[in-house]
Design a binder for these strands. Sequence first.
DNA 1: ACCGTCATGGGCTATGTCAC
DNA 2: GTGACATAGCCCATGACGGT
Length: 334
Amino acid sequence: MVTIKDIANAANVSPSTVSRVISGNSRISVATQEKVKKIMADFNYQPNHAARTLITKKSKTIGIIQKQGDKATRQNPFIIEVLSGVYIECKYHDYATISTTGEQTSEIIAEVKHLIQSHAVEGFILLYSKENDEIANLLKQHAIPYVVIGKPINNENVVHIDNDNILASQLLTRYLIDLGHKTFLFLAEMGDYEVVKDRIKGYKQTLKVANLKPSIMFTDLSRQQIINHLKALVTENALPTIIITSDTMLNQLVLSALYELNITIPEDIQTATFNDSYISAYAAPPQTAVDIQPQLLGKAAGESIIKLVKDSHIEYMNKIIPTHIINRCSTKKF
DNA sequence: ACCGTCATGGGCTATGTCAC
DNA sequence: GTGACATAGCCCATGACGGT
């Protein structure tokens, strides 16, 4: 491994001179700067991250905390898109990222504690918003800066990056009513997540105004549970004309269940989902979806946490990322 | 203005010292 | 001889300070 000493020896200068060249210190002559830079390039020198962290006490790393869930939850396109936004923004500011991998809350807590105690990260991004969250409480206890992708729960000094999920749900529901739908089913994942609460709220409000009955089903993402529920609705002749899902993965389960029950979209039933992704676009048939712009959510979160770790006196401003409906073949006018 | 010397940081390993 | 504990030294980059 090439170190700053090797560069110094090759350039016939001291290590501190090389250090100054790296940090752009103006006290170094242009000639020396050019000489050192050429040797660094020739040697393919890369600064030692551990040594730099040791002296600066800055790891230049942002921790990303994912909500509890199995591998499939972490591979959700929404998460991947958000992470991509965070990576892009952090990389732009020369920050690295590290993400939790635990499936259970206890595992995630252990990971976060380790990251805090080993000074491995300067701040965190929480990819979810949840009431009485143990992990958020842990970060507060340790006074670690963090931002949340999700809805603010209390009036705390925490930056939140969010969509207006109530409005998004109102607009989607209104759009579906305008297509001629009168019987609705909202399928939502279980858990105490604020995003789901808001989407259901917007859905209920809009149906109430239209004098229509809101039907809601919570699921633990079990395909068999969804099949059983849909079978029961068919038996009772109570199949809705539209199924809205709170997430694209749930939407995929619904498509799979409908296929098994030989119910076709959009002829027998129509479908629409939140969290648009390439999966919604490539589904059969392509799904009408609400694009919540996850990459922008990630980028905004990355920008905010880096501002926060660099200057703890910033203004705690929440950011709302706009959403829009993408109309595809899974819905049509009656 | 320019550049070198040296102390510094936390964690780890190697070495030394002591008691049993 | 062995184990427990203490101390020294190393890793690497940074920055205060000082010399030319």
